[in-house]
Amino acid sequence: MKTKLSFLLSWLLLFLSSCHTQSDDFISKYCPGSCTVIKGKLTTDGRTKPLAGVTLEVNWYTYSSPAITSNTRRKAITTTDANGNFELRFLIQDDELPNEYTNTSYFQVKASADKNTYLFCLGDNLLLEYTDLERNTTINANYNLPRKAQLVLQVSNPQAMANGDNIQSSILMDAGVSGTSYGCSVGAYLTAGNAQTTIAVAANEDIVIRSVKNKAGSQTTSNQTIRLAPGQVLQHQITF
């Protein structure tokens, strides 16, 4: 009986402490001063084509543990213009400034673009993430959001792979903020038992397939540059 009661109380406590709140910060949206500004140009197809009419939103997230509570605060919203330009302007509140608990709160910039069409390297419609934003700051973020294609990586001769042999492939793509070469990298690990994998990659721009072959303790690296069309599914064979 006592055990059942403890179990019930535990669940009740867990239920009561597991809550998520969401709020809209209109004072931030109409920032009166000391604003934080994230601005730039949103493009696709290797930064050649502006993305117009995409809604961008800044949210501040915080969570506490062990009580499973979280809070989302919408801070700013805008839509890219005909040239893909955007400016997100918002006011950071005191509890959103970096502190010793910074790892439990962060700002995210999300885009409304279709995630089946565009490649979000950071996942779920996420463009940018910050844990240390300050007031009176301007961040320039010219961002490439590639269209999506599929790359099927296959080992053409898995029977040649012994136990412990593998291929570590990295797909290097220009996605994200400019100024960093290949801002997006996706990895794959191929073995004799797992000789095929499918990866979402950037279309309409050059991508590099970097393959590191580990055979009996020795490594060989090869790079190959390819370009896929949006929506294309390409089978790419790697010979071990």
Binding site: I27, P32, S34, L91, R135
Partner: peptide, 11 residues
């Protein structure tokens, strides 16, 4: 009109 320590929102 909303007055804040960082300025005033004035619609």
């Amino acid at each position: 009109t909303i007055a804040t320590p960082y300025g005033t929102i004035d619609h």
